[in-house]
Design a protein around this nucleic acid. Structure first.
Length: 846
DNA sequence: TACATACAC
DNA sequence: CATGGTGTATGTA
């Protein structure tokens, strides 16, 4: 073996404990030495023992899989191969190379910020974090093997001169806001993944850009010579890189930019200027240039036809570089062939190890072994592998979904006394309740998480009949769970090192939306709408749409688990082709719908020039009904179902559809104006960030509670909650009863959940019809006024090529929009008790 | 639903 | 001295 540092026993462990030179900045370092130090430092600790144990578990899983592999017959393999090939061609058919997806990532973000603000640090190896945990390190430190998620004390052994700087999250957040403002200029719907990372769809921007005058592509260099001195003006590009293919992609932009750019020169005032071209590369360089000018920090970017590839590409020329993967099948395939599986987002340590055991280390192998993989892994898992091997993934950048859970957990010095455990538990519940209040959340499931001093983790959950939110309510449950565990262990005490409380299974507290959603639920004939799970509906929808697209970036988390469905005798699975066809079909339909509702293309505004951005609100704004329909309504192969008359409308053009609805509504109130629910809830994103950061802020005492917007619009919320679930069977009662109301018919009497009146009919069809009418009344009401339409007006720009992804108005489904449009809006910051420490660089979900 | 795992930051 | 916190998805029972 080539690793003298590892004993046979350690060897397996290396996959868990050893450093990953996977990431950038780790080239050419002495891995063996580093691993040796890591091992020596860790050895004997409880943590180490725990890792050993986990490693063992993984090894067993691998053994199991290998065993299964051994039992596979030629016959089965052959069958699987045929199956795989069918799927491949189906997927191939849906390949979409028309989008230009960009993934941007700030270089060593936290560390870079600290270095920027403290020149002393510039030439030193440094990291942000604490002795217990590092968030990130600068490139100098990485040479020593010091990296994110490594405890500081180990890092110190690797690099005794390492300077560890405590994190200053407020600052990072502020910088993040700055860069997001820039992102928004290229894609107002960009998805921030963390404080320093985002996905953008540059397609529309590029289309616009083609007709922009040079002045709009000109950017001034930082005027004030930075105090710190050196200042390079060049948007220096290290990467040699490929040819510019963009012209090909955009040659036919028919009604491209309706705007004539007001061309006020930017650089009139003097100072060096940088002019950027019209290609994607140039646009991305421009964005990075602006980021650097604005923040004095560098970013790296990847440009590719889908999210997964863009992400990988952004890593390619890091730091301070970019890489474009051309939008051709050949380029993509070649790129993917040499891609180590571990580089793919979603394939982590464990998956990597399992794949390696099968002789798979890069995506070429992945492709070659698909038949085998389809027999050893779950369907979702192998489908994902398949997509990866073909270089396919989502071409549509989804909006962030509603949160599904909220939690608080804390690590501490051993805590063994029950009394203290209870009081800590209560404290956690209090913190959690506070957080939930800010977002107006109520959930039905409480989960207690415990980690003992040996790092063994346990979770215990309980689901209630109704949703709760307050400290006392949560604690009442958590306390019981804890008590049970304590009793369970007694007379030994629980020796804890961590405790956490989580609430999930939220019910919608919203007033209006449930209505819309319930309609949708209705339209989904045959599906039960479990009353309070309105959001599930949406997520489901979104998900479908997502997968129709081209793979989400999702992992195969739970991993393999061999085919249980696999009958010994026959190896093949038959369901597959169908589901893929169906998906493809659905996809096509959605596409058509999406085509009509594609968001406006006006985002390409040039910040420094202030290009004319609007003027696009002209088209009939989609009403909520429309939006709902396009996003969630029943989309059959023949068209759309009108939420008012419930008839099929034979069109996939949402504008046409909208007119139809208008007619049904008996008036032409086509576009209720402006969106924004003034009460649209607080920004989840920053909220989440703050949450993660909390304790640290406290240390700095800088935490301000700027926006406590979650003002009490809560009273009104409790009102109508019950939703008309689709009653499918003879027992209406089975249709669940959501939170509040108990309008649900218990006996044979049917009561309309909308008008609350008893319906004297036993016929469910009739009853449903009545409810339909009631709902329509409400829809009508909403459409006529008060309710705000979703933001994105349909766009008239571009018609996409047929199988393109990019469906659905992102927020169509929900009246609630957690806007990210205004990156500048202040974040609610948390001031919380104590707590945790640091978090890894870029961490926070937005 | 409950629980354990994997994964991303 | 010392190995984090928040959130999501998936597999399985």
């Amino acid at each position: 073996m080539d690793n003298g540092a590892a004993s046979a026993k350690d060897e397996g462990l290396l996959s868990r404990m050893a450093l990953n030179d996977n990431k950038a900045g780790m080239e050419g370092l002495d891995r063996d030495m580093i691993n040796k130090i890591i091992m020596e430092t860790s050895k004997g600790s409880r943590f180490y023992e725990s890792e050993l144990k986990r490693e063992h578990q993984v090894n067993q899983r691998i053994e199991k899989i290998m065993l299964q592999k051994g039992q596979i017959t030629e016959q089965q393999l052959k069958k699987a191969q045929a199956q795989v090939e069918r799927v491949v061609s189906e997927l191939e058919r849906g390949r979409d190379l028309t989008r230009l997806i960009v993934h941007v990532d700030m270089d060593a973000f936290y560390a870079a910020v600290e270095m920027r603000d403290c020149p002393e640090l510039k030439d030193k190896p440094m990291a942000v974090g604490s002795m217990s945990m590092l968030s990130t390190s600068n490139y100098h430190a990485r040479k020593y093997g010091v990296r994110a998620a490594m405890p500081g004390f180990i890092a110190k052994k690797l690099c005794p001169n390492l300077v560890i700087v405590p994190p200053n999250f407020n600052k990072y957040r502020a910088v993040s806001e700055e860069i997001r403002e820039i992102f928004a200029d290229y894609d107002p719907h960009f998805q921030a993944v963390s404080l320093d990372e985002a996905y953008l769809d540059f397609t529309d921007h590029l289309e616009q850009r083609q007709s922009w005058p040079e002045s709009s592509r000109t950017h001034r260099c930082r005027t004030n010579s930075s105090p710190t001195g050196e200042e390079h003006i060049e948007p220096e590009e290290a990467a040699p890189e490929q040819i510019d293919l963009s012209p090909v992609l955009f040659e036919d932009s028919p009604n491209s930019s309706p705007f004539l750019l007001s061309s006020e020169g930017v650089c009139a005032s003097g100072g060096a200027c940088e002019v950027f071209g019209t290609s994607v590369e140039e646009a991305v360089k421009e964005m990075r240039f602006r980021i650097e000018q604005k923040t004095m920090l560098t970013a790296s970017a990847g440009i590719a036809p889908n999210m997964m590839l863009a992400k990988v590409c952004s890593d390619k020329n890091k730091p301070n570089g970019q890489y474009r993967l051309p939008s051709t099948r050949e380029a993509v395939m070649e790129f993917v062939q040499n891609l180590p599986v571990r580089k793919v987002s979603g394939i982590g340590k464990v998956s990597e190890k399992m794949l390696n055991a099968l002789g798979i280390s890069n995506c070429a192998h992945l492709g070659q072994q698909m038949a085998l993989l389809s027999l050893l892994f779950s369907e979702t898992a192998w489908h994902h592998f398949m997509q990866v091997s073909l270089g396919l993934s989502s071409t549509y950048i989804p909006r962030h979904e509603e949160r599904k859970s909220m939690s608080t957990e804390r690590t501490f010095k051993e805590l063994s006394r029950a009394e203290e455990q209870f009081s800590l538990c209560r404290e956690l519940c209090g913190d959690l309740a506070e957080d939930m209040k800010k977002e107006g959340l109520k959930g039905k499931t409480v989960t207690l998480k415990l980690k003992n001093v040996n790092f063994e983790v346990k979770t215990r959950a309980q689901t209630l009949q109704s949703a709760i939110a307050t400290l006392d309510e949560i604690f009442a449950v958590a306390k019981d769970l804890l008590k049970t565990e304590i009793e369970n262990e007694s007379p030994q005490p629980l020796r804890l090192r961590l405790m956490g409380v989580r609430v999930s299974a939220f019910v919608s507290l919203d007033d209006k939306k449930p209505l819309q959603k319930s309609i949708i639920g209705f339209l989904q004939t045959g599906k039960t709408d479990s009353t309070d799970s309105t959001q599930e509906m949406h997520q489901k929808q979104e998900k479908e749409h997502f997968s129709n697209h081209s793979v989400p970036a999702w992992p195969l988390a739970g991993l393999p688990s061999a085919q249980k469905s696999q009958k010994p005798g026959e190896g093949g699975r038959t369901s597959e082709p169908q589901s893929f066809f169906q998906r493809a079909h659905a996809k096509r339909l959605q596409l058509q719908a999406a085509k009509a509702s594609t968001e406006e293309g006006g985002q390409g505004r040039d910040a420094s020039v202030s290009a004319p951005t609007d003027g696009c609100g002209t088209s009939a704004a989609p009403t909520e009904a429309q939006a709902s329909t396009s996003g969630c309504g029943r989309l059959t192969s023949d068209g759309l179902t009108c939420p008012v008359c419930f008839r099929q409308v034979e069109t996939t053009d949402l504008n046409v559809f909208n007119e139809h609805i208008d007619r049904c509504l008996g008036n032409s109130c086509g576009n209720p104006n402006q969106s924004n629910h003034p009460d649209s809830e607080s920004d989840l994103e920053s909220e989440a960030e703050c949450k993660a950061l909390e304790g640290v802020n406290r240390c700095r005492g800088e935490c301000t509670t700027e926006s406590a917007k979650a003002n009490g619009d809560e009273e009104s919320q409790s009102k109508r909650e019950a939703q008309p679930s689709l009653i499918k069977d003879a027992h209406p009662a089975s249709s669940v009863t959501g939170a509040n109301h108990e309008t649900t018919p218990q006996s044979s009497v049917l009561i309309c959940p909308v008008c609350q009146r008893t319906q004297d009919t036993g016929d469910l069809t009739l009853f449903n019809h009545h409810v339909d009418l009631c709902l329509n009344q409400e829809v009508l009401h909403e459409l006529r006024g008060q309710t705000s339409p979703p933001k994105d007006p349909p766009s008239l720009t571009r018609n996409r090529t047929e199988d393109t992804g990019h469906l659905l108005p992102r927020q169509a489904c929900k009246g609630k929009s957690k806007r990210r449009d205004s990156p500048s809006s202040p974040n609610p910051k948390r001031t919380k008790g104590h707590g945790p420490r640091n978090t890894i660089d870029k961490f926070f979900r937005l």
